[in-house]
Amino acid sequence: MVGQALAVTRQQDFGRRGEDLACRYLEGQGLVVLSRNWTCRDGELDVVAVQGDRLVVCEVKTRSGPVWGRPDEAVDQRKLSRLRRTALRWLAAHGVGWCPVRVDLISVTWPVDGEPELTHLRGA
Rank of each mutant, 00 (worst) to 15 (best):
G97M: 04
D13A: 14
L80P: 01
A5Q: 11
C58M: 07
V75Y: 04
C58N: 03
S35N: 09
C23N: 02
V8F: 12
K79N: 09
L88I: 07
P100E: 10
P111M: 05
V48L: 04
R41M: 12
R17Q: 15
V103E: 00
C99S: 12
V2E: 13
Q12T: 15
D72L: 14
W38Q: 02
L91K: 03
V96D: 08
C99R: 11
V112W: 15
V108A: 02
C58E: 00
V101N: 00
S64D: 14
Q11G: 12
E59H: 06
D104I: 01
P111E: 06
K79I: 10
R122I: 09
Q29L: 13
T62S: 08
Q4N: 11
E44W: 06
L105Q: 07
Q12N: 14
H120C: 04
I106C: 03
A92Q: 10
A49M: 03
P100D: 09
S81F: 11
S107L: 02
V33Q: 03
R89L: 09
L91R: 06
R122M: 10
G3Q: 15
G18D: 01
V32C: 10
L6Q: 12
A7K: 12
A49V: 02
T62D: 06
A7I: 08
V50H: 05
G65R: 06
D42E: 11
V75S: 04
D42S: 13
A5L: 15
D42R: 11
V103H: 00
L6R: 12
V2K: 10
L80Y: 07
C99D: 06
C40F: 04
E73D: 13
V112N: 12
W110S: 06
Q11S: 11
P66N: 09
L105Y: 07
R54A: 09
A87G: 04
V60W: 00
L6Y: 11
D20R: 14
G69Y: 12
